[in-house]
Design a protein around this nucleic acid. Structure first.
Lengths: 129, 129
DNA sequence: ATGGGGCTTCCAGTGACGGGAAGGTCAAGG
DNA sequence: CCTTGACCTTCCCGTCACTGGAAGCCCCAT
């Protein structure tokens, strides 16, 4: 399989697949013409990576998770620890964003949004003295 | 005022303040020795920028908001439009993160987290066939 | 005069790719 | 046989909003 087929199959852009090879996440073979040749295991790994990335894991987390995935003697505790840590970061980000959303939506509600210059949003940003 | 004082006052790193000058958000004066000399209006702008950035506005949004802030003849509708657009992006991100959190927390709950290799998290990432 | 802190500029790196150029390869159609 | 067009390759730069670090000037206190 060439990179285009794999891109179709996995939904990952060819650029991303090449990048994943660059950083050593996958190691497809090469044809005589220099084209990458992907085996089923490569496609499988790429699907794994796509799902892990969709859950927001960093590339380095993905590297570790993939290694654990391939390691038959892993301890599920190692996986769980990574996932919990990531979950914590997600929750922290959600908290931040919720705070931003609340502040912003209040300000937006208070703003007339007409052609006059008076604006609670700018007042707030300016330090509303 | 030198950059260190302003950094203290605004809570922004000196590096960030220099960066904001680089990209034209502020224009502090210069002393004869080449040091930046900040006026009150510069500090005020930096505080504005700090608050806008804390609400997650991009630098380009900040540039526009700052221009509106300084424009006595602005229409509050312009400000509100930017804020609403940003709010939409925040809400979209929250939705994404909530989905990730839900998926992740279910998987984490299902994972024993001991020294055995069986792991629903990896099963899911692997495509749980 | 020496030491230490503060200031300056400039260069490079971050994460996870995306855009685009320059050029090789392959199958089909004229 | 030639050309066209779709693929593929590598390489380099750009993204966003900074951050780190090096090399060097400036100023004040001891």
């Amino acid at each position: 399989m060439n990179i285009g087929d794999v891109s179709q199959l996995t939904g990952l852009p060819a650029k991303t697949i090449r990048y994943y090879e660059d950083i050593g996440l996958i190691k497809p073979l090469r044809d005589d013409n220099g084209y990458r040749r992907f085996r089923n295991q490569d496609v499988h790994k790429l699907n794994f990576l796509g799902r892990a990335r969709a859950l927001g894991f960093t590339i380095e987390d993905c590297r570790t998770l993939l290694a654990l995935y391939e390691d038959e003697t892993r301890a599920s505790a190692d996986v769980k620890r990574i996932a919990r840590q990531h979950l914590g970061q997600i929750e922290a980000k959600i908290t931040d964003l919720n705070a931003m959303r609340d502040t912003l939506s209040h300000l937006i509600e208070a703003c007339a949004g007409d052609d006059r210059p008076d604006c609670p949003i700018l007042q707030d940003l300016g330090g509303k003295p």
